[in-house]
Design a protein around this nucleic acid. Structure first.
Length: 418
RNA sequence: GGGGGCGUAGCGAAGCUGGUUUAUCGCGCCGGCCUGUCAAGCCGGAGAUCGCGGGUUCAAGCCCCGUCGCUCCCGCCA
């Protein structure tokens, strides 16, 4: 039989040599008479006879009759490809992406990510959502909030989309009712943290006929539970390599929903508890990363869940299109998973007149948003949606320390290559 | 933008309060030995202007200042 792959490791014992050959399915052992003229990571084809051998790694080995080098690797590897990747700096890993992904543990991150994207899409299709692909070039940046990247576009300037928000709503109003999109989103923010990327994969959905953000939360619970189950069954090896587990469906189902103001109080109490009865913790005024960690600690202890939903955010913290609950609060929510925000969503304004009324409070002018407003001018059902940060979910499932590890070719303030 | 930490060979690290001429270890690399390895083992070798610039000192990888890079925390961030 013939075996093809990369030379993972070589052990020469004089009269006999063992070559560990790696392909997408794993690593197997090849036995060669005498010495071998091979370098690590060379691509080879081995013809030989398979043999069961209790002394072989895995119990089976291939006794080589001939080895053909299809592509010889230079011997000056920039880092040990077959070693423990947690001992290699992130910069080295990212600078040498093609090589670092040959490491099974690093490559397994993206097997998990593929499952996440697959199940997100297939679950939504099975629930009558239609997949869409919308433009990432937008003509104006009046949506507000985050920074936008400018792009030369013939004789004018356009921007990279920070989210498909307006298009999602457009498609709901178009009569499609339920849509989703998996696509990159761009944020021109000069942050430099382990949880931010300037380009990330946003898994978006939007649906008609909801009453409040609670409908969305219930849907996200089912969706996430489905993703976790699939990762557990399809990516058992990746989970074991990273020493990670996914939440079971029951724990996801009982994830608490905490109103924003309560979350701040609970976080303050949790901080006191963490400080072992120390000084009174100061109450935070908004959901910051520390509050996210504290509220998750609370959720894990009180509800046995790694997931917690925070809803009823103050209207002033949310964009203009967010549907109000009352004078100060909105029908919006965040999902916090293992201490990190992975989702923001909510119900949206769907009545033309109400949108026109709310714009001035956010310093916006109707004439700058005519395309968007026209979506509602001739009737739009009550609706809402949310987005899951694909890299962040991947990161938190596997317990990666930096979200950049969960991006094949991350783009941050300083990195635009490879 | 503010603050902390770290920059020593291709990679990962050690180097005690400044003091021994050849700056140490593991992986990888080069040469040799070895017929059952499992991160193979053993012997030998190459490879480092100790990020860069300046300063203090009889003496700096180690202390000080500046600078660049990386990293973490905060801020910013639908």
């Amino acid at each position: 039989m013939e075996l093809k792959g990369w030379v993972h490791r070589i052990r020469e014992l004089g009269g006999v040599s063992f070559v560990m050959l790696r392909d997408r399915s794993g690593v197997g052992q090849v036995v060669v008479e005498g010495k071998v003229d091979l370098t690590l990571e060379s691509v080879v084809s081995v013809i030989g006879t398979p043999a069961a051998n209790a002394k072989a790694a895995g119990g089976v080995e291939l006794r080589a009759n001939s080895i053909e080098v299809l592509s010889r690797a230079e011997s000056d590897l920039p880092f040990p490809v077959n070693g423990d990747p947690t001992k290699i700096g992130l910069d080295v890993i990212l600078d040498n992406r093609a090589l670092s992904l040959r490491n099974p543990k690093l490559r397994s991150i993206f097997a998990v990510q593929a499952t996440i994207i697959d199940v997100f899409s297939s679950w939504l299709r099975a629930h009558d959502f239609t997949e869409m692909k919308t433009s990432k070039l937008i003509g104006s940046g009046t949506e507000g909030g985050t920074g936008l990247f400018e792009v030369d576009y013939f004789d004018t300037t356009v921007y990279l989309a920070q989210s498909p928000q307006f298009y999602k709503q457009t498609m709901v109003a178009s009569g499609m009712e339920r849509v989703f999109e998996v696509a990159p989103a761009y944020r021109a923010e000069k942050h430099d943290t382990p949880r931010h990327l300037n380009e990330y994969v946003s898994m978006d959905l939007e649906m008609a006929w909801i009453d409040s953000e609670r409908d969305l939360i219930e849907l996200e619970k089912e969706l996430l539970a489905s993703i976790f189950d699939a990762v557990a069954s399809r990516n058992a090896e990746a989970l074991s390599l990273w020493g990670a587990t996914v939440p079971d469906a029951e724990s996801v189902a009982r994830s608490p929903i905490v109103p924003h103001d309560d979350a701040l109080s609970l976080a303050a109490e949790e901080a006191v508890r963490a400080a072992a009865g120390g000084q009174a913790a100061k109450k935070a005024y908004e959901i910051n990363p520390e509050v996210e960690r504290l509220i998750c600690a609370w959720s894990a202890r009180e509800h046995g869940s790694d997931l917690v939903f925070i809803n009823e955010f103050p209207r002033r913290h949310r964009p203009f299109y967010t549907y109000p609950l009352d004078a100060t609060r909105s029908m919006s929510f965040d999902a916090i998973f293992r201490g990190l925000e992975i989702t923001t969503g909510g119900r949206r304004h769907n009545v033309y007149g109400e949108l026109l009324e709310v714009l001035p409070k956010f310093g916006l002018k109707a004439e700058d948003l005519t395309d968007y407003l026209n979506v509602f001018k001739y009737g739009c059902p009550p609706h809402g949606g949310f987005a899951i940060g694909c890299e962040r979910l991947t990161q938190k499932i596997l317990g990666l320390t930096n979200v950049k590890e969960a991006s094949l070719f991350p783009r941050d303030r300083k990195r635009v290559r490879p």
